[in-house]
Write a protein that binds this DNA or RNA. Structure first.
Lengths: 115, 115
DNA sequence: GAAACCTATATGCGCGGCGCACGTAGGTTC
DNA sequence: GAACCTACGTGCGCCGCGCATATAGGTTTC
């Protein structure tokens, strides 16, 4: 009877949470920032992203924020989201898993040892 | 017209190639070694693994080996597979992508900085 | 000035990967 | 002999994903 580990994050869900870990973001900003970070190695489709974002909210890993600062620059259509405490824990777990995976890849000489 | 980057590896495909990077393996050994490496954070279903392995062969990233060493210890049912040069390149690319992702996670303080 | 593009969010649809169950089968352990 | 391990594989249903499309206001380009 293990403490019932939560279902693992899908790659796209982790990307979104990683972006949200940097602060509140709206959907379109998540799209841009994620693709920029991956430098073309990942293209995040709008349909995929908005649905994954909704899933994260339903799972309690992200939450919509009512933040509507009186900035006239701000596009009214934007809907902002923040990572939750549970979302952060899930992302930390996944990051740890990935770091071990990368270490294993380094041991297998799939990456330069010095990196 | 970018040089048409290949479709990215799925997580399970990367796990399999990572195991094969350590040398020839048969299917059941891939199952055991992968689960052992992930220490319970990933459970690789038999159906999923054998099908992913077949996909990798069809994509030219892995190949069956006719290796049948005269070891009487060896279970005759085993079917061995090896990583191909193309498979290694794909795994290296994915490992690089993941290492950058982990670095980003570290910057976002999802991982202890010292690790 | 309209055609093209950017920002911003969202749905429709079809394919296929995945989880789970099951099948086969010989060997070992209790 | 029942249960379990090794070893390979198929069947099936769900749903996540990629791609297309919808909506709509603002800006840039020809």
């Amino acid at each position: 009877m293990a403490p019932e580990s939560p279902p693992p994050l899908r790659p796209i869900e982790f990307e979104i949470l990683l972006t949200l870990a940097g602060g509140e973001r709206h959907g379109y900003a998540i799209l841009q920032e994620t693709e920029e970070r991956s430098q073309g190695t990942l293209r995040l489709e709008t349909g995929t992203m908005y649905r994954a974002l909704r899933r994260l909210v339903e799972a309690g890993l992200a939450r919509p924020t009512e933040r509507r600062q009186p900035d006239p620059q701000d596009d009214e259509r934007r809907r902002y989201y923040a990572i939750t405490a549970e979302g952060r824990r899930a992302a930390e777990l996944e990051a740890l898993r990935l770091s071990r995976l990368v270490a294993a890849a380094r041991s297998a000489r799939l990456l330069p040892l010095g990196t």
